[in-house]
Structures are given as structure tokens and as C-alpha cells.
Amino acid sequence: MISEQARARIDEAISKLPARRGALLPALHIVQEELGHISPETARELGELFEIHPVEVMEVVSFYNMFYAEPQSRHHVYVCTNLPCSLRGARVLYEQLEAHLEVDENGNTADGRIHLGHEECLGACAYAPMMRVDDRYCEDLDLDKAKRALEELE
């Protein structure tokens, strides 16, 4: 269920835009912040709210990398493996972190704590290698620094 608080934030987003549908991306961010992913039930609720078919909601969810249709680990860790980062060892670091966390490519730790994946350019090219931990950037990494950042995660 979308909470009252989330609903109030969605209404505020709608009020700032010329058309209701424009607030769908903001609404997905808001709901996902609370529920972790967009379930079929949430899609139905959002469909009603935006006067569109739930499948249209899921179409948007599946188009964008940052929206999830499935339950997620508690934290997302994405190593940038685009060219500027790869030139500075990002893929080596990514493999080391996979081994460290004992996960496969784009995998989750067994305790549901961390999803480790790789991502395309995050706009931190001079501070490579780097990774995004939820909504934080960790830059100028080596393996020790990256491990420490992961240890901080609950």
C-alpha cells in the first residue's frame, strides 16, 4: 500500500506539473524509497492514481535502470565500468569485490544485504575507479577503501 505520506508527496509533485502523468517518475521514486520496489499491487495503485493502465506503469518501470520490479537487497552497490573507469582498473576492482562478497555478476549477498552490479558512466570520470552506494558516490577507490565502504553498510 502506498502510504499517506507518500501520497501527499506525490500530490505535491502533481501540483507542480502541467499534466498529471508528468509526476509518474517522481511518484515511482517516492514509492520505491518507501517500499523498495514497484510490485504489481503498487503498479495497480499508481495506475489508478494516474488514470493509466498498470501495464503502462510497468512499461516505465522496466525502461529505467533505477526502478525495480522485484524485491531488492537492502543496499545497491554499482561499480562504474565505462571506459574512463575501466582505463583505471574498475573491472579488476569489480571482480575483486565480487570475490570479496562471494557474489556472481549482478548478484546479491546471501544475507540480502548488498546487491553488487556494474553501471554505465556516473559522471565521476576523473575520480576513477568509483562506485555508487545507494545514493552516495565513493570515488578514487582501491580495494581496501571499497571494502571499508561496504563494511559500513547495515
Partner: peptide, 23 residues
């Protein structure tokens, strides 16, 4: 307004579609 991880939304009309709550 925030995007959600799609390079193509940097293309100006892709951006406009996204702003309107679409792919």
C-alpha cells in the same frame, strides 16, 4: 525533476517524453 537511469533521456525529445512520465 529527477531522471531514473536512462542515457537516452539526455536527448532533448527523449527528455521531454520522460518529463511527461513516459519511456
Amino acid at each position: 525533476t529527477r531522471g531514473a537511469g536512462a542515457y537516452i533521456c539526455g536527448e532533448e525529445t527523449g527528455l521531454l517524453e520522460s518529463l511527461e512520465g513516459k519511456k
